[in-house]
Each structure stands twice: as C-alpha cells, then as structure tokens.
Write a protein that binds this DNA or RNA. Structure first.
Lengths: 134, 134
DNA sequence: CAGCATCCGAGATGATACTG
DNA sequence: CAGTATCATCTCGGATGCTG
C-alpha cells in the first residue's frame, strides 16, 4: 500500500476518539436519544422555535405525555435542549434547542426531509419487494 | 378528475408532501428503519462499500445474527439496500446500498459524525445536569 | 398547565439450536 | 457461510390516576 492509499484508508476507518460503531462507545447512546422514535420528532419540532410542553405534544402527533417528558429529560441531560420554567400559577415551561441542539437538528432535518421526499420511491420499492414474495 | 381516474386513485395517487410529524404518515416507519438502533449503524457500515453478512456483523459491533438479518430485510424492502446472493457452496451473499440508500446514508453519516464530534460537550452537559440533581 | 408514579401488554432484543 | 426457528427476557410505550 502506498502512502496515498494509507491516507484514504485512515480516513475511512476513522480512528476518532468516539466511534459509534463500537458497542461500548457512549456516542451510541446519544445517537439513540437523537434518532429515537420521539427524540427525532421532538428535535425537529423544536427547531422551529421554543414551545411549551403541551404545544410540543400537539406538534409531535401521537406522543404520550410520559414519553415526551422522558424524551425531553434525555435531550436536556445531553445538552441539546434547554428547559426554562417560570414559577407562575398556572406553571409555564418553555423548551428550546441549545446551539448544539440546533446543529444536531439541522442535520437530522436534512435526513428527515430527504426521507419524506423519497417516500414515493420507498413505497414503490416495497410493492416490488412484496410482489416477488407471493 | 373523472370517475375512471378516481377509481384507480389508490394506484396512481399523487400525494401531498409526506409529513413525518403526522402520526399516520408512512414516512415515520421508514425513518424508524433508517434511524433505528441497528438500521443507522448498518447503513453507515454499508456506505463504505459492499459487505457480506458476517463482515457486516463484525463491523456493526454487538448486533446479533437475528437483528442484522431483520434490519437488512427492512432496508431491502424500503429500497435502500440491494442483496446479491451467489448460488455457490458455501453461499456468498453481498449487501450494498442502492443509489437512494447512499443518499440516505450520507445524510445519516453527517449526523453521526457530528454527534461523535460533540461527545465531549454532551458528556460535560450530563455531568452538569447530574450534579444539579444531587 | 406541567408534570410524576404505577401498572401492564406488546414488541424489541438476545441466546441457543438447527438447516441448506 | 448465511441464515431461520424458538424461547426467554427485558425495555418501550400507552393508559390511568394523582399532585402542585
């Protein structure tokens, strides 16, 4: 292998400090928070601005109060979401993305929008796949 | 639209944009295949080239036979992965991304690399969060 | 309004054994 | 090698009731 090939291989194998492909890497857990069923939708919703708890619940259609609460706690702990509670009565709590959260959400939304835009192809592929199994 | 076109609308329907935030949207299911625990890692691994079943298993550290098989089936059905089996003995089966799969994987890897690169910030945020709860 | 505590079923996951 | 089949386990997620 010459030196140019070594450089290419080095980049592809990615000897970075954190490697999500290794099962002990903590980045795997954070990736699951970000890409999880409700994590992805919550980050996507919050990318449009700050929202209160029940506003978020309506935007993330189908999420239960328990799962939204749990999801927000995980994202807050990872430093992606900021929680601001006002000690009023009735209580008012606003959630918003941190700068890091916005950067994550941008990349996530790029993926989400692409998947949405590919659904006709995906559904067509499923029909072809299912047809060949009957 | 005349009545004949309406009758075949199920086949030829032109959809409004798919919206993953609506709980009945099929894009939600595909997004879960793509971002799921093993789906994301499998797409990420396959972005570097075609691999055989057990090669993939070693790259996606920790995945079981069963889950890898299940994950590959879902991604193949969605048209993101192509499976090529050679009827030799012993059998040889190669998996590779389709063009659509590569586009999805690129956006996914952008997210994965960013998360990996942010882990120092994330772990610091966790310590701060946990400290304020004791 | 913004949650938490509890229970419980469904589905995801893992370990093991087996097949072509 | 490339899977499938089966069973045990365990987490996720929804429903409900309650609190400040």
């Amino acid at each position: 292998m010459n030196s140019a090939e070594e450089l290419t291989a080095g980049q592809n194998l990615r000897h970075l400090p954190y490697n999500v492909f290794a099962k002990t890497c903590p980045s795997r857990g954070t990736l699951e928070h970000v890409t999880g069923r409700w994590g992805a939708l919550t980050l996507g919703a919050l990318h449009e601005g700050p929202f209160r708890f029940n506003e978020l619940r309506r935007r993330v259609d189908g999420v239960s109060e328990k799962m939204l609460s749990q999801t927000l706690h995980a994202l807050e702990r990872d430093g992606l979401v900021h929680r601001e509670a006002q000690p009023t009565n009735p209580p008012r709590v606003d959630y918003e993305l941190t700068p890091l959260g916005h950067e994550v959400a941008e990349r996530l939304l790029s993926l989400i929008r692409f998947v949405e835009g590919s659904m006709d192809d995906v559904l067509a592929a499923r029909q072809t796949y299912d047809a060949c199994r009957d």
